[in-house]
């Protein structure tokens, strides 16, 4: 599956202040995580305002008790990205429930020190996803309510 082309990303990110840096980061991320794709959509801020932002939506693989699960996530990028951290959510399907923890709240929002301590260029999306999947391997953020799940064995 081919990655989205750079010039398409540039068009999508025309309102981003550091577009070239953002394009490089996103390209790198979707090459490493094949089940994430870039999507422009309306992001609703807590103050009620809304803005068209890019998100990387899809799944990331997490190894949990010997099986690999495709955990659905959505990583929103502010127009100041990569100088501000992504806003990240677990997105349970209708057959999943969120297990809240100190890292994930009931809305699925993800809280990790990596995000609080975000400093570009030391921080980046790939680094964040590595940390996030490592944390999820210890503290699974979603569980299935369906009995018919079929995990892929390692």
């Amino acid at each position: 599956m081919a990655a989205v082309e750079e010039r398409t990303l540039k068009k999508m990110l025309k309102q981003y202040r550091h577009r070239d840096l953002a394009v490089r980061e996103i390209t790198d991320t979707i090459l490493n995580y094949k089940d994430l794709r870039p999507v422009m959509d309306a992001y609703n801020f807590l103050d009620g305002s809304s803005r068209d932002l890019m998100s990387l939506a899809g799944t990331v693989p997490v190894c949990y008790r010997g099986s690999v699960y495709n955990i659905p996530v959505c990583l929103w990028l502010l127009d100041t990205y990569p100088y501000n951290p992504p806003i990240c959510f677990v997105k349970p399907t209708s057959k999943m429930i969120i297990k809240t923890s100190r890292h994930v709240d009931s809305n699925g929002k993800i809280y990790l020190p990596y995000l609080h301590e975000w400093t570009f260029p030391r921080s980046g999306l790939c680094g964040f996803i590595q940390v996030m999947t490592g944390v999820f391997a210890e503290e699974m953020p979603v569980f299935s309510t369906s009995a018919t799940h079929r995990p892929s064995l390692l």
């Binding site: 599956m1 008790r65 495709n70 349970p92 399907t93 999943m96 699974m140 979603v142 299935s144």
Partner: peptide
């Protein structure tokens, strides 16, 4: 565009 794997999660915890 990238493809999409089917989301999955471990069975309900107790």
């Amino acid at each position: 565009l990238n493809g999409g794997a089917v989301p999955s999660a471990p069975p309900t915890y107790t």
